[in-house]
Design a protein around this nucleic acid. Structure first.
Length: 270
DNA sequence: AATGGGACCTGCGCGC
DNA sequence: TGCGCGCAGGTCCCAT
């Protein structure tokens, strides 16, 4: 799943339901999500730990765990394209089920099997996080514009580049560009200072609105309670090829950019 | 260093 | 009905 708003939604929900809970055991039905160590080692290490904190970095969800001997470890999850985290879980086919006390499970489902689960002593040492760019909500307009002006890539590719800015994927890149009225295939450095500022504001606005509605449920994404997020109904572009633009009635176009489906309004976005 | 294309997976919808 | 193809919210690896 998904992008920053979806992971942020799950994080907020799981903080309410899981903080302080103990992981009694883990059921690994499919070991593919866990690749950095053996199933057995993973299970032994996680057993008996307590969830002390839950936070998000980019599109990754991170649990801070405290072991019985006071040792700290971090459970890092990336849902990639089709991962789901469900609590309380009820799926006997979940790839991984974390057993909490009273026999209640946290399920990790993942249809396409691209997701990842890692147990680490220090999440910050992971190369994935070391090269990750700033969070949109801690960045300011000036940083964004300055970094943008140094780049030659097409603006949509750059927004989806996690080392440039963290958390934005195909849907929110498209929606933010529409709101800012900037065409996705423009080269980043051709954006005026004013356009860059408008784009940054649009990113923050779109991500915030999506979080407020619990994310975009397209295909697999659901909230941790299994219910759909409400932002897909608010999409102005995504999956609307051939339909009229809400602003100018022109037909929304779809093209491929950097290997990804890319929607835009040929009239509104310049 | 930065950029773009293909690979990794499974399953769905479409056209023939 | 059935098959093959293209497509899907992400990221890594590799060639340029």
């Amino acid at each position: 799943m998904p992008e920053l708003p979806e992971i942020e939604t799950i994080k907020r929900e799981l903080k309410r339901t899981l903080l302080g809970k103990k992981i009694v055991g883990v059921l690994i039905r499919d070991c593919r999500p866990i690749q950095d160590q053996s199933k057995q080692k993973f299970a032994n290490r996680i057993k008996g730990t307590r969830i002390k904190a839950i936070f998000r970095r980019g599109k990754a969800l991170i649990f801070k765990l405290l072991g019985p001997k006071g040792n700290v470890s971090f459970l890092v999850m990336h849902l990639r394209m089709s991962g789901q985290l469900i609590y309380p879980g009820n799926n006997s086919k979940a790839r991984v089920s974390f057993r909490l006390s009273k026999g209640i499970y946290l399920d990790f489902n993942d249809q396409r099997c691209l997701g990842e689960i890692m147990l680490l002593d220090d999440w910050r040492q992971l190369p994935f996080f070391k090269r990750m760019g700033p969070e949109p909500f801690t960045m300011n307009n000036r940083d964004f514009s300055e970094r943008l002006s140094a780049r030659n890539a097409k603006i949509k590719s750059l927004l989806m580049n996690q080392s440039f800015i963290a958390g934005i994927g195909n849907i929110y890149a498209a929606e933010a560009l529409f709101k800012a009225k900037i065409a996705p295939f423009r080269k980043a450095q051709t954006l005026s200072h004013k356009e860059a500022g408008r784009l940054f504001k649009s990113i923050v606005a779109v991500l915030t609105a999506a979080i407020n509605r619990g994310g975009s449920s397209i295909d697999q994404y659901v909230r941790s309670n299994g219910k759909k997020g409400g932002y897909a109904q608010k999409h102005k572009l995504y999956d609307r090829e051939g339909k009229p633009c809400f602003l100018c009635q022109s037909r929304i176009k779809r093209t491929t950019l950097a290997g990804r489906g890319t929607y835009f309004c040929p009239r509104c976005q310049k």
